[in-house]
Design a protein around this nucleic acid. Sequence first.
DNA 1: TCTTTATGGGACTTTTTTAGTCCTATTTAG
DNA 2: CTAAATAGGACTAAAAAAGTCCCATAAAGA
Lengths: 132, 132
Amino acid sequence: MLKLTRKVEYALIALRHIQSKGDENISSAKEIADAYGIPAQLLAKVLQQLAREKIIDPVQGPAGGYRMKKDLESINLTDFFELLEGPVGLMDCFFDSNCNQHAQCNIKSPILKINDSIRTLLDKMSVADVMK
Amino acid sequence: MLKLTRKVEYALIALRHIQSKGDENISSAKEIADAYGIPAQLLAKVLQQLAREKIIDPVQGPAGGYRMKKDLESINLTDFFELLEGPVGLMDCFFDSNCNQHAQCNIKSPILKINDSIRTLLDKMSVADVMK
DNA sequence: TCTTTATGGGACTTTTTTAGTCCTATTTAG
DNA sequence: CTAAATAGGACTAAAAAAGTCCCATAAAGA
Ligand code: FES
Ligand code: FES
């Protein structure tokens, strides 16, 4: 409950690693996986996703890998999480709205308040903030 | 990711219901389950847990049920969540510390910061706040 | 006193989500 | 040409969450 997924965790680890190597160097999925004990195939997918989202730039071929593309200051955590995991909300009701069974649910709007508070908090933090 | 569990959701629904009935009335698990379309057995367990935690008072026998015991103003959300679901943290590393595979993890302390922010937020809200 | 309806609670099963693997294609430096 | 990298679909395994089953105990009321 209220946990981050490994996907997000791996993405953050990788981004921090890539950033620490500087703009001139490029880091491969395998290199990062080995460095942190992350399953290589899984990390590969996460990096591919980050590349699709234009956060990192892929370089193919041997000696290939990824380098930073987007400024991490410009991505807030809500967007980052949603881009990796889809809609972020404490309950599914907020986006699905197929909550037929609880027609007279008495906590939807109250929970929405907590939800908004958390989103506001995450909105105010950038991915770069997490890496300071 | 970052979701509440149904257990918590059911607990909040039930507490709000019990509170709305006032101190003199008593609400049974079945009554609440029927009213909101919640599986009765499951709700029963949640209510039993709330009773063990002295949040509600059980009344046994026919015409039994539960009535409010603790003032909901006095329970903050962090405590409430943890009492139902155990430690709340974005990653297991914060309590387990058996994170052997990521010996050189580079995001532990940064994530801890987000975690603290969320906890602080939840600390400041009481269960009663959720029901306003 | 018996029956019925409630809570209490262990053990289990099912479902859903998350995590991880496998396999094949494409790109490209050397 | 080959080796090492990204790209990505399909699948399997593991873990977590949700729900069910079953029996025990309590007590109100006929
Ligand atoms: S359970 Fe869906 S709105 Fe409350
Ligand atoms: S993965 Fe456990 S501390 Fe980072």
